[in-house]
Design a protein around this nucleic acid. Structure first.
Lengths: 344, 344
DNA sequence: ATTAGCACTCATGGGAATGGAGTGCTAAAG
DNA sequence: CTTTAGCACTCCATTCCCATGAGTGCTAAT
């Protein structure tokens, strides 16, 4: 008993049908599909086999069959085909592409928003980060006495701000001089190297400034990609749309999980820099997401993958459609960023 | 038939009880309260009166009474008293106060997070904004040819970044020169004036740069408070905790409404710069929030109100507790910001 | 003015009955 | 050996009914 051609065809039909209807599919509806010239009894036998093989599950004795995670995995690997986008969808997405000239933050939020609106699922977009990030500019802006705002700009086109203490005797002039010095000397250096070099090369000059230099370096390093670990999220409430979460308690847990941006970030990160990748149900390794799948696509600046975007939906999502949308959006975002940030 | 002393006492007891239990309160439980030396029948009569006056409502004939919005309004105006904070709550809040030295963004998010964790409701915190915001620093960082990142820093301690086009012939040097010029010349100018002055004073020098100057000014002005219209939000999923939203459909609508940050911003804004203000149920003017109240508190930098924070919860929230928490948090945030940003 | 008493209303929750979808098995047909 | 028709069986979902109980409004007595 193995997966012969007929079993594959039946399995595929079941997955397609279940994705469409959301209800367990029985042998009868399949036998009515004119492309099968089989009776419901035959199909029942095959379905029993498929269940033994772990591809199908039965919610209860007298219900139809539901695909297992294993079945979805097989489906996305071998059976799925991308579906075409509708005109409406293309319209929304290309409108989004035109609306440039904004901060990176806004672009990311907008991307997530479009993704979730089109798919009706929850969208996650990781801020671009790369180990090859380079320094563009550093500015220390004096605030109250003893405090300064550190603004770091990298070639990822993002300003990140945080506040550090500075020795009281350092005035605006000196902070400005220092900003200029660092900006010039380390222009275009990789962020991962800047810290070390600063410690070595500026340590002498600043040795009587207490912990100022170490603080500054630490601040710069905790923002290695200038946006490390940040994600944009949109459409979390769409989760409530699908029936698996009609139980209010589970819904709450789910939303709470989604609100933890750290762990969402990890999920995206774990997906790796692949063009398209799938995590199905149990593969996500989190109980609360056992009925969900995460489909991700990485986006590139030039040819270097710098981030990942993804969609979380029910395991029975229309993968073909979602893949098409992600493909389109990741390329759009990539080209927007590339245009904006590429070395001249 | 007017609101004599006894009616007020009864009404107050009903509100207190209902806030505690969440179930319609009947005449019997009140008559068992030893502080009333009245039979349930007497109380029933009074309750009927209170219903006629619009302070109570009956979900159905044989249920107890539930306070109306009008009753809550009376309650918060005249009857409510602040409740003391528990040691745990104070511990959480003071821990939060100690964790300084972060970007403003992080402080705001943290504030919202603490608020929602303590109250178990949804917390909103408006970014500080003020018509008296002053420019600290402007930096134009060259990106790809023809693009530059604009970083605006105001005395609200925030960097805001967005991208604009620049004439191709303007090199890094010139952008830097211009940044320095603007930063110096307009240092400490009110943001609302900077735009006009720049147009007048720099128009000549930059007249052959196409729309560059207008673009720059517009960018700076759309960030008048450097953070205009931005809010931090936390604990939206707490909404699902309360029974009024156990209906999954309503829950979805609610979450969708909360996710619209614009309208949430407006709600905060409408509350005005009062120390504490309440919006109860229908007073919020949005159907979906008809079972919710918004309690807000403004926070100050020095003595100037620059923003508002608030908590959205069910109309039957423990107002006394929420007011205490908001009071504490708004003062904490105010002092954190004041320390950080006050003129030296 | 207050209260005891009583009839009445209505939401709630627990069976019991019903209908229907879908299965597994068996035996017959191809 | 494979396929199919037929049938008994299982289990869920829906509906209906009824008992229960909380709470009310009204009336008459205190």
């Amino acid at each position: 008993m193995d997966l012969n051609h007929r079993k594959l065809r039946i399995l595929r039909a079941i997955v397609d049908e279940y994705i469409l209807s959301g209800a367990p599919v029985g042998s009868k509806v399949l036998s009515q599909n004119p492309s099968f010239k089989l009776s419901s009894a035959t199909i029942r036998n095959e379905m029993a086999d498929l269940e033994d093989l772990g591809y199908l599950e039965q919610p209860h004795t007298s219900a139809g069959r539901v695909p297992s995670d294993k079945a979805y995995r097989l489906y996305v690997n071998n059976m799925m085909q991308r579906s075409n986008l509708t005109e409406d969808e293309i319209k929304v997405m290309s409108a989004y592409c035109q609306s440039r000239v904004k901060g990176l933050d806004a672009v990311m939020r907008e991307t997530a928003s479009v993704l979730s609106r089109i798919t009706h699922y929850t969208a996650l977009v990781m801020m671009p980060e790369s180990t090859t990030n380079r320094l563009r500019h550093l500015q220390l802006v004096p605030l109250a006495e003893g405090y300064a705002l550190v603004v770091v700009v990298t070639d990822a086109g993002v300003a990140r701000d945080s506040v550090i203490r500075v020795p009281a005797e350092m005035g605006a002039d000196e902070l400005d001089r220092l900003s200029r010095l660092i900006s010039q000397r380390y222009y275009n250096c990789r962020m991962i190297e800047v810290g070390d070099r600063m410690m070595k090369e500026l340590g002498g000059e600043l040795q009587d400034r207490g912990t100022f230099l170490t603080d500054l370096v630490e601040t710069m390093e905790t923002a290695p990609g200038a946006n490390a670990h940040r994600i944009a999220l949109s459409g979390a409430n769409n989760m409530l749309d699908f029936p698996a979460y009609s139980d209010i308690d589970r819904a709450r847990q789910l939303l709470a999980a989604v609100e933890k941006k750290d762990s969402m970030y990890q999920m995206l990160k774990n997906a790796g820099p692949f063009e398209i990748s799938f995590r199905i149900g149990s593969e996500l390794g989190q109980d609360i997401f056992s009925d969900c799948s995460l489909v991700t696509a990485s986006y590139r600046i030039g040819s270097i993958p710098v981030g990942t975007m993804g969609v979380i939906g029910p395991t029975r999502m229309p993968y073909g459609k979602v893949v098409s949308v992600l493909d389109y959006m990741s390329k759009s975002l990539g080209s927007i960023l590339t245009n904006l940030l590429e070395e001249d």
